[in-house]
Design a protein around this nucleic acid. Sequence first.
RNA 1: UCCCUGGUCGUCUAAUGGUAGGACAGCGGCCUUUGACGCCGUGAACAGUGGUUCGAAUCCAUUCCGGGGAGCCA
Length: 564
Amino acid sequence: MSSEGSPEAARPSNFIRDIIIADIAAGKNDGRVHTRFPPEPNGYLHIGHAKSICLNFGLASEFNGKCNLRFDDTNPSKEETEFVNSIMEDVRWLGFEWDALFYASDYFDQLYAWAVQLIKSGNAYVCDLTSDQVRATRGTTTEPGTASPYRDRTIEENLDLFGRMRAGEFPDGTRTLRTKIDMTSPNFNMRDPVMYRILHAHHHRTGDKWCIYPMYDYTHGESDSIEGITHSICTLEFEDHRPLYDWYVENLGIHHPQQIEFDRLNVSNTLLSKRKLLLLVQKGLVSGWDDPRMPTLSGLRRRGYTPEALRTFCANVGVSKTNGVIELGLLEHFLREDLNKRALRAMAILDPLKIVITNYPADLTEPMEAVNNPADESAGTRTVPFSQVIYIENDDFREVPPKKYYRLSPGTEVRLRYAYFITCQAVIKNEAGEIVEIHCTYDPASRGGNSPDGRKVKSTIHWVSAAHGVQIEARLYDQLLLETTGDETADSDFTSQLNPQSLVIPPNAIAEPSVATAAPGTKYQFERVGYFTVDPDSTPEKPVFNRTVQLRDTWAKIDKAQQP
RNA sequence: UCCCUGGUCGUCUAAUGGUAGGACAGCGGCCUUUGACGCCGUGAACAGUGGUUCGAAUCCAUUCCGGGGAGCCA
């Protein structure tokens, strides 16, 4: 009686999971699992963070452990409360709740005390070198660094100077507290790394209490240690920092969490550099951090992505140490899979072509019954008004149909979804030779779209009654960057790589009346067009829809392949 | 050049010395009142070279290729 797990429950194995399983088996940390998600509040979370969030929270819940949210707020010049709030909102939106909330700044006093301890044990010293001088004496990849002339100050002098640094006696940049490790280490991180720098800056939480701030390397391991973290999961670029992480917790003699590095998430056609995203916002090239074209969680949310789709995606991309790029198509696959289950169906026309049904009574309106979601019977049905003049999608008519074109063309018969079979009788053009409307006849026996005598049509197309349809603003999004790779373009000119078509709003879009009053966030599948989500800008007078993702389009592929 | 780290279908990933599997993408078909969804089928990979072994994607050596590293950023 083995129960079949759902696809999402079948967790792909990964090396971090294996480490944890082995640790539990070995009784390490008394079998405890405690992780943490440690963002710096200097920007909005993006899809890359989602992988880390899902990993940390997912591992904790899988092994009955805990996961903290901790803000790594050691650099006040970049951090803001706005960002901490958005990060909390986004983590919750993704579907996770932290066991405890901390800030690295909670530990500033403890960190200071430990720094004093390291000075007293002869492991740290105050250095008067400027940052340029430090750089010049750090050595190169092939040459060792040289010792700072201040390296052998007495403990008393170091204590005195460090105290005065804290007291605000020295201007920014004039001194640092450095760890005395090894200037000849092949690992630059071990060449007497800076622990504290002087920064007379207002901190979003500690205000003006401090004018010296601890560096990431000095802060992170100890913060993990204080919280009893067992597995400190971070991205690959911190591999070279691990010896230093280990050095601090060992020399302080405190709980030693294990740092494990995994590969950062990269998605094709997607910009995931926080700094570049910041630039887009600052330059006004997007409407904000939650612009639906942004890969931020708030942007994806507004665009219509669901947390479920994001979680399934993260669970399926794998965790390894390879620097890979996931195809955007995989994300879109899981998105469509989820949206297909939950989105209400409706009919909307992005690029309308007028159809007059010449044998249909001009004064008649019929309510046609349409199903709300074929994937979910409980979603029920609705009624869509039908009348003599309707709009169809311009793409659904060709005066000269190419091979394999099944839709409307002169003389052909198609089904109007949930309505009638119609046959194209005439193409009406203006003096310029442009098509202005199509005249069709309908078969009254085909009401509801049912084949009256068993005859087949090759195509079913969607429609909106001209007299009843509502004007909508449909915001059609495409990738933000022209190039196929995301982060490689030099920062200086990556903005020139922006896709001018990343947002297109067709001028005459129209939808069936039922969608007009939907609340922001409501998800629709406009049949045969794509998935759309009601934007917060929406009003009953002017409904606004964001195209979340297109439907797969086999015809577009055939059509393209047929082009000369 | 030095240190760290990694190379498995187009992409991502599994295998833990014993039949190279899955997902997405592709292709072909079935189904269809969405050219959607679904279903079925199919092509496609162990970076190279030596070695150890009855047996190597897996262990060893070496070559090649990629990623990261010299912030008082995280």
